[in-house]
Each structure stands twice: as structure tokens, then as C-alpha cells.
């Protein structure tokens, strides 16, 4: 089953958008699955490598932007569930820098 692609759409809820701190957490989580291929796609754009901060920075995903996360490889379903949790977490606790 390692060739199966697991895919989930997600809307960015954070008012600050998909900024550097969630991106770093996303990349860190994606790299916990070294044998998986992780891509993130914004409508109208080519998929980008979900294990690269520089590539994720190109998404410009503001609040409300719809992204599609795709994972393939061993433990892909688990990786996708982890990545969804990471991207949907609240990173902007009160009085903390949000970027």
C-alpha cells in the first residue's frame, strides 16, 4: 500500500495565514516521515515540496486559502493525519509574536 496517495484539502484558519512558525512545524513533522513524499498544492499553482521551508514560503497562503496536502509512502495515512494537526494548530497565542 506504500504507493497509495493520501490526500486532504485544508483551509487555513489562522488570521496570520500559513506563516513561518507553522511552516517550520509542518516541515519538521513531514521530515519525521523520511520515506514519505509530501506535497502541498494551492489552486492554480504547481505542487510544492512539503519538506522545504523555502518552497512552502512560495504558497502565500493567507487565512481562508485552500490547500491540498498529499502524502505517499510508508505510513502515509499517519503522516497525513499528523500534518493536518500541525497545520490546523493555533500558533498565535495571546501576546505572542505571530510571525
Amino acid at each position: 500500500m506504500t504507493g497509495e496517495i493520501h490526500r486532504q484539502a485544508v483551509s487555513i484558519a489562522n488570521p496570520q495565514g500559513f506563516h513561518m512558525r507553522p511552516m517550520a512545524a509542518f516541515v519538521e513533522a513531514a521530515n519525521r516521515y523520511p520515506s514519505c513524499v509530501v506535497t502541498v498544492t494551492r489552486a492554480g499553482m504547481a505542487p510544492v515540496n512539503g519538506k522545504s521551508m523555502l518552497m512552502l514560503m512560495g504558497l502565500v497562503a493567507e487565512q481562508g486559502t485552500d490547500l491540498v496536502i498529499e502524502v505517499s509512502g510508508p505510513r502515509a495515512a499517519e503522516a497525513l493525519a499528523t500534518l493536518l494537526q500541525v497545520i490546523q494548530r493555533n500558533y498565535d497565542e495571546v501576546n505572542e509574536p505571530s510571525c
Partner: peptide, 11 residues
């Protein structure tokens, strides 16, 4: 936030 994200894209 939009300006910040667009600057990151430029970087």
C-alpha cells in the same frame, strides 16, 4: 499578515 506572506514569497 498579507504583506508579510508576500515578502516571504519574494525571499
Amino acid at each position: 499578515p498579507s504583506e508579510h506572506l508576500r515578502a516571504l514569497e519574494g525571499v
